[in-house]
Each structure stands twice: as C-alpha cells, then as structure tokens.
C-alpha cells in the first residue's frame, strides 16, 4: 500500500505548511533580535575529526575530496573572528550512518552564535525560541534547568563525576539495559545512561536544559577549572528527545588544536580514516575570536515536538529512502 504512493511525501500537507511557518518564524525571531543570517559552504576541504560525528565525502572534479558539513560551526566561527557579530544559519547538515526514528542523514539545523554572551544567557534564548515555536501551535512550555550532575543523581541515582565504569555499568544493568557490546569506555557508559535512563526522567511535555558536562565530554566547549572541572556545555531536551547542543565557545587556538589532535588519535584507535583538519578555522582562532556562546538546534525535531510526532518521517517531505 505504501509502495503505491512511494512518490508522495511521508509528512502530511498540513505538517509541511507548518514547517514553512516555523522556518519563517525562526527568521523573524532573529530579525527582531538583530542576529544576522549567514550562509557558509556545505562542501568543505576540511571536516570535523570528531569520531562520533561521521561525515559524508564526495569528489569534486577540480577541487578533489570535499566533505559535506556535519554542522556549519567552523566557518561560522571564522565569521565571528572576522567581526560580523551575532549570526545564525538555517540550513541542511549531513551525517553518515544516522538513520532511525529520530535521525535522517540530512536534516535541518539551526545554528547561532551570540557574541559577548555567556552560555547561561544563551540557554535562556533557546528556551524563548522553543516557547515561541510551541506557542505557534497553541501550546505552553515549562522550562527546567538542571546540571548534568544533578540530572544523573535525580534520575539515575549516581554521581557521573565520581563513579567508575563498573558502577556506571551496574547502574545501566539496574535499569534493565543489557549490553551486547564488547568494549565500553567510561564516557560510552555516560552517553548510554544519558540517552536511555537520565533523559527518560525529564518532564515529558517540556523543555529541559542540562548544563555543565564532564570535562571529558567538552567537545568544543570551554572547560571551567574545578574541582571538578566542568565543560561549559548545555543540551536542550524535549522530553527525552535531544533538541539542541550549545557551548561557551572555546576560543583558545592552542587548546583547540590539542583537541583536534586528540580526536584524530581517537579516530585512529577506532580504525577510522583521518580527516583533513580545518587550518583556516584554527588560524581564525589564532587571530582572535570574540568570546561567544553558540548552539545548534535540530529543526526537524523541534517540529516533531510541536506536533507530537514519534518519527522524523512524519515531518520530512522525503526521508532518505524516498529521496
């Protein structure tokens, strides 16, 4: 039955009209706040070395290997360093190996940077954007802020900064998770518990802003010295659905180069091919990027939250298998 209509969209027409209104609403939100819309290349000579964010590559006849961006983070930070001020970008990002109820290999990403802001202020703005989007479908939003540590204590009953891998494993087992995996590092256990246990405890129909991550999960966030040292990073969840990830941006070029090297080493250990590092991005940090807070938000998932959809197919015109 589905195959007979395989040419048609998986989202219904009302949802596609709602999507268009959401995109217009996002642009209006930033226009009112004097945040400038920018466009940066989706095809880049460099790629993120983060082994957990696998990208797609294609061969350009004149320029050689080009990487489809997994987020516009590096070129947007180059624009910050160039002095453009607060900016946003609304567009497609691409990630290999991501497919499921909450994933499509290409998806719509809203990424924005606030020059001179702290990450707590930006968390507030994420709350305002989500609240405005939900108001558009006549729904109100409760926003909860909680630290990563408190979220684990409250919803998993453990301290994610103290417990070793064995205790984290025991916690997962207590929550009915049986691993088929062979090797799990401590951070793998934290990721698994966050995705399966901790986030399940969040307000089902509301926005939860989780902040202050373990330093081992800093990604591109600044680390605040401890004890314990914490990454000035936050994530926004709608129920247990991850909507956004933000940072107090790392502006130290040497530290950034160190993290790239560590990620390349991790890639090698996992048997992934090395990727070309973005030297222009590192040079921009070297030249001086203003202190900023930045965040990337999945627009398809925001639409899922607005319309109570359980599968990303319900909000996409043509998911990957119909593309």
């Amino acid at each position: 039955m589905a195959s007979a209509r395989e040419w048609g969209p998986t989202a219904d027409l009302a949802t596609l009209r709602r999507r268009a209104r959401l995109l217009a609403g996002i642009r209006a939100f930033f226009a009112r706040r004097d945040v400038l819309e920018v466009e940066t290349p989706t095809l880049s000579a460099a790629a993120t070395p983060d082994p957990h964010v696998p990208g797609l590559r294609l061969d350009h006849p004149q320029n050689g290997a080009r990487h489809l961006h997994t987020s516009p983070e590096f070129p947007m930070k180059r624009l910050l360093a160039a002095g453009l001020g607060s900016i946003y970008q609304l567009g497609r990002a691409y990630r290999a190996d991501e497919a499921g109820r909450h994933h499509n290999p290409e998806f719509t990403l809203l990424e924005w940077y606030r020059e001179g802001w702290g990450y707590h202020r930006l968390m507030g703005e994420v709350g305002e954007l989500v609240t405005e989007a939900l108001a558009g479908v006549g729904r109100s939003v409760t926003v909860t802020r909680i630290t990563y540590r408190e979220a684990f204590r409250l919803h998993a009953g453990i301290d994610p900064f103290r417990e070793g891998a064995a205790q984290l494993e025991a916690c997962a087992r207590d929550h009915g998770i049986r691993l088929g995996a062979v090797s799990m590092a401590r951070d793998d256990w934290l990721d698994l518990l966050m995705a399966e246990v901790v986030s399940a405890g969040f307000v089902a129909d509301g926005l939860t802003l989780v902040h202050d991550y373990p330093a081992s999960q800093a990604a591109l966030a600044r680390i605040r010295p401890g004890p314990p040292a914490v990454a000035e990073r936050f994530e926004a969840y709608w129920g247990k659905l991850e909507l956004a990830n933000g940072f107090q941006e790392l502006t130290d070029a040497d530290e950034q180069a160190r993290r790239f090297r560590a990620e390349q080493a991790e890639r090698e250990a996992l048997g992934h091919e090395p990727v070309p590092v973005d030297h222009r991005f590192l040079a921009a940090l070297e030249a001086g990027m203003p202190e900023s807070a930045g965040v990337a938000l999945g627009v398809d998932r925001l639409l899922m939250a607005m319309l109570d959809c359980q599968d990303i197919r319900e909000v996409l015109a043509f998911p990957v298998d119909r593309a």
Partner: peptide, 8 residues
C-alpha cells in the same frame, strides 16, 4: 538507533 548528538 540511539545517539546523543556529541557522543557514542
């Protein structure tokens, strides 16, 4: 498929 944006 279960994946935190920045993790395993």
């Amino acid at each position: 498929f279960v994946k935190p944006g920045k993790g395993q």
